[in-house]
Amino acid sequence: MKEILKEIEERFGPIWERVQRPKLAQVGIEPAKAVPLLTWLKEHRGYVTLVHLSAVDWIEQGEFQLTWLLGNPETEERLMICSRIDRENPAAETVSGLWPQAVTYEQEINEMFGVSFPGSPRQGVPFILEGWKDIPPMRRDFDTVAFVEKHIPGREGRKHIDTRTYIGEKFGEKGYLHD
């Protein structure tokens, strides 16, 4: 995989890369160059399959990471093209023109993370969430527990004991500086 990584660097400028397994490597690239790179890989280097498109919320850094996983059926090699986009008003170029199935992935990411892919046909159309009013649920600032408590009733009579508090009570933990 070394050669292809070297070539990418030569053609597309600075990248970060990591060979994970003999036939799997990861490439990080700035967002503006992501789709040109994907196009080049598909058209000229045999990476004709879009295996997957996913997103990760790096909330601490204020970024979303998009990962396009490409496959080369000839060599059975795979490349993960990663790109970090701004978490504020996140948007990325669509690859639905290169791979029709990307429409579904982009629709899903649009719904789950709120990342938009302008020009992609089914943006804004519910994927699995109907009538969703909250912030996109895969964002890390979405409070899953609060949502569950509000919308999915637990069994009646449930009683959770907080271990920390329980131990303090049972073993007579006390403070002496505050009444």
């Binding site: 527990v145 408590e149 449930r158 959770h160 271990t163 329980y166």
Partner: peptide, 9 residues
């Protein structure tokens, strides 16, 4: 547990 499915008893 993100579903608040677990109680310590």
């Amino acid at each position: 547990c993100q579903n608040a499915a677990i109680d310590m008893v």
